[in-house]
Nucleic acid binder design. Sequence first.
DNA 1: CGGGAAATCATCCGAAAGTATGACGACAAG
DNA 2: CTTGTCGTCATACTTTCGGATGATTTCCCG
Lengths: 182, 182
Amino acid sequence: MLKRLLTSSKTTRPRVGKFTEPDIPETRLSKAPHVKKHILIYGLCGGILIAALKLVEYRFLVVEHSVAIYGGLIALLFAGVGIWLGLKLTKTKEVVILKEVAVSGAAPFALNEGRLRELGVTPRELEILGLIATGLSNREIAEKLFVSENTVKTHSSRLFDKLGAKRRTHAVQVGKELGLIP
Amino acid sequence: MLKRLLTSSKTTRPRVGKFTEPDIPETRLSKAPHVKKHILIYGLCGGILIAALKLVEYRFLVVEHSVAIYGGLIALLFAGVGIWLGLKLTKTKEVVILKEVAVSGAAPFALNEGRLRELGVTPRELEILGLIATGLSNREIAEKLFVSENTVKTHSSRLFDKLGAKRRTHAVQVGKELGLIP
DNA sequence: CGGGAAATCATCCGAAAGTATGACGACAAG
DNA sequence: CTTGTCGTCATACTTTCGGATGATTTCCCG
């Protein structure tokens, strides 16, 4: 039991705590479908740049001015575009985080009547089991049900016998496992 | 005396181990240092490319051959480098993707450490609370932990005090509500 | 090195829990 | 009408719990 406790914390807590931090709100930005889009954009930019290059070449031939200036312009242009694209792609990819939070469906708890009959647990005993599970003492249960404490003791005794429990805490545990109490 | 010696080595050690173990499975992929690295690489490539450009310009001036070819070469070069960089960056970032698989049906219990500190519940006390919740008696807990029954009673007494519980069943109930036990 | 937290162990004592047994009334089924 | 189950109550007894208190050891922190 305790081991299970620790085990679950071993697999659950660190993962959430270390990787996603307390950011419970889902910060998902899935970009899987956008990849192709970016490739397209990239190609488009490439085309535009090639066209620009052509233009530059054209002016180059026509005007035939300082070659170094035009070359530098081209270099700057492409370098800038490259950096821009790199950053853009980087930024886009950077945020890709898939996060699925456990929903933990609320257990509606349906009383296991079959088990009740199977064990021969009477309604009164079940009622007392429920009160025991809330942490009440025999006396408090007796007052709550307007009966004597001895009655509660006999009920609980028979209940423990039917559940195969030795203590009330054990009975609670068994009752939970058997679906007798939520 | 001998018993105490064994006790300290059998109960203290495992306890510490149990509580620190959960942090071991860390499959983290730190990316922070890689970013700057990439920026450096990028800058380096930029320098190399500029140098290449200069070279091309030089040959351009000297040989004065077909301008279109050199321009195309430059464009291709830069385009290729841009694509390569983009892909590389993208790839690097993609590695950082975190996939958190949801645990649908499993118990999502996460120990409430804040409450622990808030109430001043020690690890040992929490351990005993877990054992109490399973329905074990003080004696059984003592045997399980290799300590004396009195020790268990002391621990549970302080635990009840901290939880504001009067009975062990009540303590279990409170512990569940407070997220101390599953 | 002192001080404090944590864990350990002990003793005493009253309260609560659990066991064993018997008994009584209500009520449904045979 | 008899039988059986269920709920109720009681008495007597044993076991377990829980509170109060004090002591010791270990470890960490200032």
